[in-house]
C-alpha cells in the first residue's frame, strides 16, 4: 500500500502585522475598561514569554506585572527562563511559590494522582494571579495558544482563566515564529514545551504527537474545514487524525460558558445578548 506524505501547510504569519494587531488589542481592551496595567503568569515557557513581550510593548514594561509561581518540584530552569524574560523586558515581577497553598490539600488526599495535583496547582496560580490583578490594578492576560485551546490541553478555571487572551488565535508553531521575531531568548523557544506540573513532563509526550503535526492537521480541520476523511486522504495517519478530532470534541466544554437551564422568556446567553465591550 502506498503511503502519502502529508501536505505541507504553510502556517507562516506576517510578524509585523500580527504584532500590530495583538498589541493594539491588548492596549484597547485594557484601556477601554479604565485600566492601563496587566498581570500575567510567567512559567518560563514560550507562550507566556510571548504574551509578556506583547504586553510590555503594548502597555510599557512598568505596567506589566510578571508572576513567577513555582511549586517545589518545578524545574529551576523554568524559574531562570522566566527571570530572563523579566530582566530582558524590564517588567515588574513577583515570585510567589504555591507550595504552601497546595500541600495541605495533597496531604488531605494522599492518593491524589498527578493529573489532580496538576489541576490544583494550575488553579492555585489562578488565585494568586487574580489576587494580584486586584492588588496591582491590572487585568489578567491569558497565555493559551490556539493549539492548546483546541486540544483542551489546559485546566478549566486554572491556566485558561484570564480577562483577555492575545495569543489564542495563534497555533503553537506561529507562537514560535512570532516569539523569535520579537526577540524571545532562543533557549526558551528551543526547549520542549512542558506544563512543568511534575518532573520530566512534556506536552508532546503526554499528547502523543508533536505540535508540528497537530498544527498542520488542526489548520486543515479548523481553518480550512477539511473533514477527518479529507485529512486522511491528504496523507495524515488515521490514528493521529482520530486522536486529534476526539480531543477537540471531548474538550469543547472548556471553550464555552456552562449552559444555563432556560425557563424564562429572556435568558443570559440565549436571548440576552450584549457585546462584552458594551458602552466602551
Amino acid at each position: 500500500m502506498m503511503t502519502k506524505t502529508p501536505p505541507s501547510v504553510d502556517l507562516h504569519i506576517n510578524p509585523t502585522l500580527a504584532r500590530k494587531i495583538l498589541t493594539g488589542f491588548i492596549r484597547t481592551e485594557i484601556e477601554r475598561v479604565g485600566f492601563h496595567k496587566a498581570v500575567l503568569g510567567l512559567s518560563g515557557g514560550i507562550d507566556s514569554a510571548l504574551a509578556c513581550y506583547l504586553a510590555a510593548e503594548a502597555l510599557g514594561p512598568q505596567n506589566v506585572l510578571a508572576m513567577r509561581m513555582p511549586y517545589h518540584t518545578s524545574s529551576p530552569e523554568s524559574l531562570e527562563h522566566a527571570q530572563l524574560v523579566i530582566d530582558t523586558l524590564g517588567v515588574q515581577s513577583l515570585t510567589v511559590p504555591i507550595t504552601e497553598m497546595v500541600e495541605p490539600l495533597f496531604v488531605r488526599f494522599p492518593d491524589m494522582d498527578n493529573l489532580r495535583k496538576g489541576n490544583v496547582m494550575a488553579r492555585a496560580r489562578m488565585i494568586v494571579l487574580y489576587d494580584q490583578s486586584s492588588a496591582f490594578g491590572g487585568l489578567v492576560i491569558g497565555t493559551g495558544n490556539k493549539t492548546e485551546i483546541l486540544l483542551g490541553y489546559s485546566t478549566l478555571y486554572g491556566d485558561s482563566a484570564c480577562a483577555l487572551n492575545p495569543i489564542g488565535d495563534l497555533y503553537k508553531t506561529q507562537v514560535r515564529q512570532l516569539a523569535a521575531d520579537m526577540g524571545v531568548p532562543s533557549e526558551i523557544i528551543a526547549k520542549p514545551p512542558s506544563a512543568d506540573l511534575w518532573v520530566g513532563q512534556t506536552d508532546e509526550d503526554e499528547l502523543g504527537f508533536t505540535y508540528e503535526q497537530a498544527d498542520q492537521l488542526l489548520y486543515l480541520l479548523v481553518d480550512q474545514r477539511y473533514s477527518p476523511e479529507d485529512c486522511i486522504a491528504a496523507g495524515f495517519e488515521p490514528p493521529l487524525v482520530h486522536a486529534v478530532v476526539a480531543r477537540v470534541r471531548r474538550n469543547h466544554f472548556k471553550r464555552i460558558l456552562p449552559p444555563i437551564a432556560k425557563i424564562s422568556n429572556r435568558t443570559i446567553g440565549y436571548d440576552f445578548l450584549y457585546p462584552r465591550d458594551w458602552g466602551t
Partner: peptide, 11 residues
C-alpha cells in the same frame, strides 16, 4: 473585521 493573517503584509 480583519481576518486571514498569512505571510502577506495585508490581511
Amino acid at each position: 473585521p480583519g481576518r486571514g493573517l498569512g505571510s502577506e503584509e495585508q490581511l
